[in-house]
Design a protein around this nucleic acid. Structure first.
Lengths: 117, 117
DNA sequence: CGCTAGCTTCGACATGCATCTATGTTGACA
DNA sequence: TGTCAACATAGATGCATGTCGAAGCTAGCG
C-alpha cells in the first residue's frame, strides 16, 4: 500500500484526518485527503472504481471493467491514478491483471465525511 | 440548493447513487458524484470547506476563513466552486457574506462511500 | 454624497490533465 | 522460438483550472 493510503486509512500509521466537522484541517492533512478525492473526481475513474468495488470479492480483471467508453491506454492511465492514490491495489496473475479495493480506505473516507458532533 | 446537490443528497429528489460497493454506477450517476468529489479534490477548497464545517453552527463569514495562503480573489473563486457543487450555501448579511454547509449533502457522500453488503 | 471595507467578477497567464496513437513489455502456448 | 493477447508506457495535443492583479459591486457611515 502507498504511503498516501497508509496516511489516510491508518493501516500501519495513525489515521490521516479527523472528521471534516470536528476541527479545521491542517495544510498537510488537506493535501493528503484532497489527493484521494481528486482521484475520485473524474467520471471515468469513479466508474472504474465502482466496477471493481461492486465486483464479487471487490476484485476484478481489467478486461472485466475496461468498457467505459475510452481507449485501453486511457483505462490503464486512470487505473494507475487510482493505484497511486491508494484506492486500488493491482496484482498480475498469469495473463491478466486484477485490481481490488484497498482495505480500510473506503471506510476511512466515509468517516472523514460523516458528521461527528 | 443546486440541482446537483439535490441529485446527490435527495433533498427533493431521489438520491443520486447507490453505495459504491452495491452495484456499478451508470454514466450519469458517475458524472454527478464525480463533480462533488472533484470540488473536494483541491487542498485549498478542502481547507475552506473544513473551516466552514468545523465552525459553530457550520457557518462562517468569509473573513473568518480566508486565511489559507492564497489571495482573496482566489478564495472567492474556490468558494464559488464549492457553491456550484452544492456543498456550500452563501448568504449576505449586511457587510459580510456567510457560508454554511449544505444540509444532507455530507451524509449522502458519506453513505456513498460506506460499505453496504 | 463620497469614502471605506468586504467580497465578487474580469482578463491574463502558466500549469495540469484527459485523451489519443504508437510502441514496449509480459506471459501463455504451439 | 515465434506469435498472439493483455496491459503498460511514451509522446503529443487540446482543453480545463488554479492563480494573480485590477476593476466592479454592495453596504454601512460621516
Amino acid at each position: 500500500m502507498s504511503k498516501l493510503a497508509q496516511s489516510v486509512a491508518g493501516a500501519s500509521a495513525p489515521p490521516c484526518c479527523p472528521s471534516l466537522t470536528e476541527r479545521e484541517l491542517t495544510e498537510k492533512e488537506a493535501e493528503i485527503a484532497a489527493a484521494m478525492f481528486k482521484a475520485l473526481g473524474d467520471p471515468v475513474r469513479l466508474r472504474l472504481f465502482s466496477k471493481v468495488a461492486s465486483h464479487p470479492d471487490r476484485e476484478a480483471c481489467v478486461c472485466d471493467i475496461a468498457d467505459v467508453g475510452v481507449s485501453q491506454p486511457t483505462v490503464s492511465h486512470h487505473l494507475k491514478k487510482l493505484r497511486e492514490a491508494g484506492l486500488l491495489l493491482s496484482e498480475r496473475r498469469g495473463t491478466w491483471v486484477y485490481y481490488r479495493v484497498a482495505p480500510a480506505v473506503l471506510s476511512a473516507l466515509s468517516g472523514f465525511l460523516s458528521m461527528r458532533d
